[in-house]
Simulated scan of single mutants.
Amino acid sequence: MDLPRNFTIRERGHRIHNPFDSGKLATLGAALRLPPGARLLDLACGSGEMLCTWARDHRVTGTGVDISTVFLRQAETRAAELGVTDRVEFVHGDASGHVADTPVDVAACVGATWIGDGVPGTVALLRRSLRPGGIMLVGEPYWRREPTDQTVVEACHATTRDDFLPLPETLERFAELGTDVVEMVLADQGSWDRYVAAQWLNLRRWLDRNPDDELHDELRAELDTAPVRHVRYQREYLGWGVFALMDR
């Protein structure tokens, strides 16, 4: 059980596997005003940057769950670098079926709502681990601009324009699920660039080192088109944010 190799090649150098930079992640952590000792569960935690930095900065504790062995090794290394190995742990597993043994103060799925087959299922999954009065964190794309045609939709990694909603409708959907939106921090074009453009350097260095790998031609073709696709479509049309929710 692991992520496909092309995904880890593309994002191996990342600490944050979504279009947040470290400043936005810190802003979110401060905005939540978590007390020392608050317990977090981070489903699809990637390389664990949220848990590790918040454990350092806010003295929270937590568990991260992810399917990627590569990213979990990076998470454990990061925890050691920041001196928080006594406050965080990382579990290799399928986040879609993970429920905390003891209810937590914050249950998060930041940018991986496919683990619940979409936002409603992910919110339902997070609720199973959350204490009464706790906070859910959901990271989700939204349309910054209405896509003009199917080419734009597919270039933004969607199948149909209904895969994502504009920002107001995204917030309305959370309300329909019985939650209050109590905070949000949104990506901007600069943080999108840092997430996506960093992948191009990862790809190029991997291509130079692995000319005979079976994935070489596929990833070479991706790098040929990715920069223009990003600036023409994703950077202009697709937003992304983390939304803090509390049950009504």
Score class of each variant (00 low, 15 high):
248 R>I: 05
89 E>C: 15
17 H>T: 05
170 T>I: 00
201 L>R: 13
42 D>L: 10
122 T>I: 01
107 A>M: 01
91 V>S: 06
141 P>T: 02
238 L>N: 07
231 V>R: 12
233 Y>Q: 08
183 E>Y: 05
129 S>G: 00
162 D>I: 04
228 V>Q: 12
186 L>S: 11
204 R>N: 09
46 G>M: 03
84 V>I: 13
3 L>I: 01
247 D>E: 15
199 Q>W: 00
114 W>M: 00
154 E>F: 00
64 G>D: 04
102 T>V: 15
72 L>H: 11
48 G>H: 13
106 V>M: 04
14 H>F: 07
216 H>S: 02
138 V>Q: 02
98 H>S: 09
9 I>A: 07
151 T>D: 11
2 D>G: 10
152 V>F: 04
114 W>L: 00
56 R>C: 12
247 D>K: 08
139 G>P: 01
231 V>G: 03
85 T>R: 11
141 P>D: 06
82 L>M: 10
29 G>Y: 10
11 E>D: 12
200 W>G: 00
63 T>D: 07
95 A>T: 00
140 E>W: 00
167 L>G: 04
24 K>E: 15
104 V>A: 03
78 R>L: 15
175 A>F: 09
186 L>H: 09
243 F>V: 05
188 D>G: 13
50 M>P: 10
235 R>V: 05
40 L>F: 11
25 L>A: 15
131 R>S: 00
171 L>F: 11
154 E>S: 08
88 V>T: 09
63 T>E: 14
193 D>I: 03
129 S>N: 01
91 V>N: 00
16 I>T: 07
43 L>Q: 02
235 R>P: 07
244 A>F: 07
40 L>P: 03
233 Y>K: 08
10 R>Y: 08
